[in-house]
Amino acid sequence: MRLPCPHCGTRDVQEFTYLGDANVKRPGADEMSEAAMTRYVYERDNPAGRQREYWHHSSGCHAWIVVTRDTRTHRIESAEPAKPLVQS
């Protein structure tokens, strides 16, 4: 598997570190509760199919990216820098 880093081009998956589902969002201070934190820390959709996920280009440009990938085929749909997505 190779990932298309938006900064470095297509690179071997060995250069990247996987974090997981990019749709998981830490609850804000106003919505914080044990149940909300349990959902955030532990529970996952774990889809069979299209998933948006965080990868870190740890042996490359050190950027966090969001890759859209099919978990049934490992086909990569897109990869984009994570920073603008997280800030929005």
Binding site: M1, Y18, R72
Partner: peptide, 9 residues
């Protein structure tokens, strides 16, 4: 990484 593919890399 998450996978349902029954094959790895």
């Amino acid at each position: 990484y998450n996978s349902y593919a029954q094959r790895g890399n």
